[in-house]
Design a protein around this nucleic acid. Structure first.
Lengths: 337, 337
DNA sequence: CTGAAAGCGCTTACAG
DNA sequence: CTGAAAGCGCTTACAG
């Protein structure tokens, strides 16, 4: 590898001047700068980020923390899209992404220890449990961070307007004549799951519909299986709902499977609405009516927020609420006639 | 942050001894080691990976290079699974993942420059074009690497047994009575696409079926749209095939959509077989018959190969051929009666 | 078994 | 406008 010393020797200038020229400092003569840049380029020189990081105490590296129970990591249909948006934006600003886990080598460490170990300039926390103590510690630490799908005043947070999304879902179902509407919730440690349960209740209130406790079944996690199992419980009810609003698309897809397995049809017997609008939603049969979150935007905004925080330490923390929209496909049906 | 100097001062030993104790060197007395470890732990000390990397010229970091035309990056239904497998395995060995792109800050650089800039110990190249000059340069460089879905003698490579996969697909279709079998290929810069086209030809030969040129349509890229468009071309033929073998699941799903849009049915009018067995394959209707690649295994093997190469420079390069299997679902139909 | 010193490749006061 | 020197936090010969 060619180092700054090599460039210095070749050009006859000191490493100080070479460094300054390379970093485009103003106090270098144009002529010198031009020469140094040319030689550096010809020699194929570029700085060693490690050495640079050690002196500058800045790595131009962003940590990605992926907390989720399902263990699917990057295969996550929603968050992989978020991360991609985040990545593209971060790279524009010269930041590379590093995955941060709970280990350093073989030793169990906290996320925050790992983040300091790697010297990342900031972290994005994805898919977190609102009550994970390690995430809490991270949020309270001085390390710049942005957290998705959690609320906190102590760092930057971003989430979709879950409450409004629920209202859109119920508006839609109500307009199709549905009044017996059930909810498949996912409140195990999930902020969004809790929000959507709340939004469901508020939306029913809006139409003066009473909420039957048996119509709210907690699937626990946002998974296909939990949606499937929750739906089966609803199907066993004496008075089966005509519509189901699931807290996520994966759950909705599991629910539709349960409906089919019971010999019924969605939407002919039961209408189903999901939440997220993952890639799959448009490809299954019936196409899934759902509340779309803008995953890409969420990632991009997260990058902007985090990088701002890194560049300006005094920056106040932001809370960003992202818009959602209703996507009508074939899993919901008008039952007014 | 607490540094090795702090631990040295606190324990009364030199940083040399502290370093040795921390790294579990044999030539430190048990008593000393124990004391140092205790104090270090109590102080919340752990080494700074940046400083460590600078002296050791090793970062315990693996670069991920994601080359693909579709621009979907981490959302890729097949490769996101591969990466997840790779990640989990790499982390077990203490390596963290960093994404390598073609920029350093705002400046366009090659992958290899970026990899050196970040000092990664090795790279995995995913989804590459076999003829991408930058990938070629990378393969030929001394940087340890493992490349997926490409063949080369100059580095470690891993790919599924595409040829055999094609044979399985055609065996299946032939056994269902199909003889008019078309192929939707994806040969634009893709090794796997080319392999599968070859495998298709070999399999037809096996049954003495002649290959009609009009039955081979090159979709170009592995995308939904290209599958859709390719199928439309097949549907315009005077003698429409009874079965289609697509070079990937996404293409197969696009093809099925084209069949539906033409007012026909898969599998009643045309049977369709894909390749990959992505998550979606089991959820669409009809469930997609396909050739499964073991994406997770591909990722894990890649990590093993790469880490071996890093730890033992004299290690010979390996070529690993991964098994595939036929997954029969509902998109193929017996037409013998 | 332990320590003083050099060095990894940069950047940045400080001085001129 | 330019350079000598210190320092970032480690590891590793080298010496004892």
């Amino acid at each position: 590898m060619v180092t700054i010393y090599d460039v210095a020797k070749k050009t006859g200038f000191s490493i100080t001047t070479v460094s300054r020229a390379l970093n485009n400092y103003p106090d270098v003569s144009e002529k010198t700068k031009k020469l140094i840049l040319e030689v550096a380029d010809k020699m194929g020189y570029f700085p060693n980020s490690i050495a640079r990081s050690l002196t500058m105490k800045k790595t131009f590296t962003l940590g990605v923390i992926f907390v989720e129970d399902l263990g699917i990591g990057m295969k996550h249909p929603f968050f992989s899209v978020v991360i991609e948006g985040f990545k593209q934006r971060a790279e524009k600003f010269g930041f590379d992404l590093v995955f941060i886990n709970r280990f350093i080598g073989e030793d169990r460490k906290s996320y925050i220890d790992h983040a300091y170990y790697r010297g990342v300039d900031g972290v994005i926390v994805v898919c977190s449990h609102y009550d994970d103590p390690e995430v809490k510690k991270l949020i309270e630490s001085p390390l710049p961070s942005v957290v998705l799908d959690v609320h906190s005043d102590q760092t930057n947070v971003i989430y979709s307007n879950n409450i409004y999304g629920c209202e859109l879902a119920i508006d839609h179902l109500y307009s199709l004549g549905h009044q017996k509407i059930a909810h498949i919730a996912a409140t195990d440690g999930s902020f969004t799951g809790k929000e959507r349960l709340k939004g469901f209740g508020l939306a029913l209130d809006k139409y003066g519909l009473t909420i039957d406790d048996s119509y709210i079944v907690n699937g626990g996690l946002f998974s296909y299986e939990s949606g499937y199992n929750a739906m089966n419980r609803l199907l066993k009810l004496d008075d089966v709902p005509t519509a189901v609003f699931a807290s996520s698309d994966t759950m909705a897809i599991g629910a539709i499977k349960a409906i089919k397995d019971a010999g019924l049809s969605a939407p002919d017997d039961i209408s189903v609405v999901g939440f997220d609008d993952i890639e799959l939603a448009q490809h299954i049969t019936p196409g899934l009516t759902t509340i779309r979150q803008n995953a890409e935007l969420m990632g991009r905004k997260a990058a902007d927020l985090l990088i701002n925080q890194i560049n300006d330490e005094d920056e106040d923390f932001s809370t960003i609420l992202l818009p959602v929209e209703l996507i009508i496909r074939d899993s919901t049906k008008d039952i007014t006639n």
